[in-house]
Amino acid sequence: MLYLRIMTVALLTAPAAMAQDDLSAMFGKDSVRRDGVTSTFKSTRIINGQSNETLAKGDLDFRVAHRFGDIGGSDGGSKTFFGMDNSTDIRIAFEYGITDRLTAGISRSKGSGSLSQLYEVLGKLKVLQQTHDNRIPVGVTLFGNAVVTGMKSAAEEEEPSYFGNFSHRMTYTGQAIITRKFGNALSLAVLPTYIHRNRVAFMDVNDMFALGIGGRLRFSNRVALVVDYFLPFREQASKDYFAERGVKFYNPLGVGVEIDTGGHIFHLNFTNSTAILENQFIPETTSTWRNGQFRWGFNISRRFSLAK
């Protein structure tokens, strides 16, 4: 009888024990997180280029970006305190998170290049978010802006800053930001970019494609190395024409340190591009690292939560 009871108890508890095993196995499988990868980059900019990050719903981001003069070369050195006496571009922006995936913003830049006094309207939409289980292996964010210059028109039609009508003042950027975060330390981005400028100088190009790459390597919870580089595709005839006139175009390269101070994301960076907006630094960079024509710059971001 005792044997029968033991057998009964064993038979009744066996499925439960087996079920426990199965549950453990299932737990093991489900330990792979299925949620979205966050903080691929800490800021909405890598250095010059955009990152995949958008603002959280209701967040207002106040941004200040500054690029100083050449550190070396004929315009740099100790006489300008390594470029700090000059500023090539300054941008002040307000960006707002309409939803967690959609950011809109406005900005004013000094401008550097053939156009100055730039007013920008921008939008950024997170289309795909990378997931931890690799169901979605990359994040995709779309960025677009429209920029208008408020500068006075040049008197001569040969100038790129001659504005026969309002549309001549406009330039645009369209960009896809494809990103992947590898573990906690490394994030990479590829940025196929299209720039359209309504009016350009003779032999310059209205439409320009460029390919950007960027990355972030985290050293600690607060400090990371950030890099971005753009390869603009300019027609050879255009390059030759400008080269004959002493103007050579270079590819923008930015290298910097990103510091998360808690409320601020602070970028200390070095770049050869003088301009801050894509509409200018991609098609119009004429300064090169080799001649000491790189500069110190910073991006400061301060976020305010306006959501209740």
Binding site: E158, S167, H168, N198, V200, D207
Partner: peptide
């Protein structure tokens, strides 16, 4: 507001 125009060749 999109257009594509190049400045004439400088004389």
């Amino acid at each position: 507001s999109c257009s594509s125009e190049k400045a004439p060749e400088p004389s």
